[in-house]
Simulated scan of single mutants.
Amino acid sequence: MEKSITFKELSQRWLSVSSLGKTYTYQQNLQSYINHLNNGIGDCKVADVKPAHIDEIIRQLYIENPNTKKPTSKKVLKNIVDCATRIFDYAIENELIYKNPARNKKKVIPKNAPTKIVSAITPEQQQLVIDTEHRAKIAAVIMMFMGLRTGEVLALEWGDIDLVNYNLSVNKRTQRISSNKYIVTEGTKNGKCRYVSIPVNLGAWLKKQKDISNSYLVVPNRNGELQSPTQWRNLWNTYQNEINYSAYCKKCVNAGLIPANKHTPAGIPRVVNTFNAHQLRHTYATLLYISGVDVLTASELLGHSNIEITLKIYTHLDKQFRELNISKFDNYIQSDLDINNI
């Protein structure tokens, strides 16, 4: 390997080696981190890259991510630094350099870099999930009340659902193998299978869905086959539009107005925020917390690889609901008690 090699050339060689046997999504994530690094040092010779170059990349991304136009989250910054560290370690192994300019750079990631927190959907949105009819509704209901991941829902078969004992076996998931193709693989994200209880009042509804289904899959495409990434994305987008239209119609009725046709050229105003599938899984975690399910049981139901992940969610929820309760207290003493002349 020539010593005049640029970082961009080296990173692609490293990627081809390190991504062998890895999933398509894993490879795409690494390429995304490399793209950020290339924006700053791609054309530099590997031997010329200094720690200050890495510092500047972190600083620029902290200020604004060129893709989102927002500050880069702490987790992504750490992943970018980790990727750079591994690439330069590869350069050291091949005797291109003798010191890694990215090592220990995680220490300089700003403490106030944003932490991405997935939020549960609101009670209004939860009711809209229940009330709005759409092909994606069954996926949304299963994610919100049984906590499955998107890949687990798309791979779910009716044979995995026991409507006699009200439980669901989560034993496989979809894996992306190209830009627009999923395959089904055995096991879940953490490699383990799990059983999730089905709320009793959802059992009858699921049975009706099974009776009218034309596929062995619970959430198939229109041909009864496994969804592709594009099909799933389009399905979810139309579902969000239908959710919004349901909310819009309710608001019109409450205001004594006649709702516009959903296909009106002027478009339907956005009256409720969109939400992604992962927020429904977080909603399930929140519902477990509110109903008093202990953290160990919640961890098993959610299929987390270790209890620390669940503890982190529960700790955040504990803080969130404690602040909410204090807010209720403040509102009470301000509105219901006369303390102005205390």
Results as ranks from 00 to 15, higher is better:
residue 47 A to L: 09
residue 286 T to A: 03
residue 230 T to D: 12
residue 192 K to F: 10
residue 148 L to C: 12
residue 38 N to W: 04
residue 185 T to Y: 00
residue 130 I to D: 11
residue 97 I to M: 11
residue 2 E to S: 10
residue 132 T to N: 07
residue 172 K to D: 03
residue 293 V to I: 15
residue 202 L to W: 13
residue 223 N to E: 12
residue 46 V to R: 04
residue 274 T to Q: 12
residue 51 P to N: 11
residue 85 T to L: 00
residue 179 S to M: 09
residue 11 S to I: 00
residue 47 A to T: 14
residue 238 T to W: 07
residue 286 T to D: 05
residue 191 G to Q: 04
residue 246 S to A: 15
residue 69 K to N: 15
residue 81 V to K: 08
residue 12 Q to T: 01
residue 102 A to M: 06
residue 255 A to M: 13
residue 6 T to F: 04
residue 30 L to S: 05
residue 69 K to P: 03
residue 103 R to D: 05
residue 284 Y to M: 10
residue 150 T to C: 07
residue 80 I to S: 04
residue 88 F to N: 08
residue 161 I to H: 04
residue 266 A to V: 10
residue 327 S to T: 13
residue 34 I to M: 07
residue 308 E to F: 03
residue 337 L to A: 03
residue 44 C to I: 00
residue 204 A to P: 00
residue 89 D to M: 11
residue 234 N to G: 02
residue 210 K to T: 01
residue 290 I to D: 00
residue 193 C to E: 13
residue 218 V to Y: 02
residue 250 K to N: 11
residue 275 F to G: 02
residue 25 T to R: 09
residue 94 N to Q: 09
residue 258 I to N: 10
residue 46 V to G: 07
residue 255 A to W: 01
residue 143 M to Y: 01
residue 249 C to K: 15
residue 237 N to L: 12
residue 226 L to G: 09
residue 88 F to Q: 08
residue 262 K to H: 06
residue 237 N to D: 12
residue 208 K to A: 12
residue 130 I to F: 11
residue 223 N to M: 13
residue 288 L to Q: 10
residue 298 A to F: 05
residue 335 S to L: 12
residue 177 I to T: 15
residue 33 Y to A: 06
residue 235 L to E: 10
residue 303 G to L: 05
residue 215 S to I: 08
residue 58 I to N: 05
residue 95 E to K: 15
residue 21 G to A: 07
residue 124 E to R: 15
residue 26 Y to S: 13
residue 193 C to H: 11
residue 163 L to F: 04
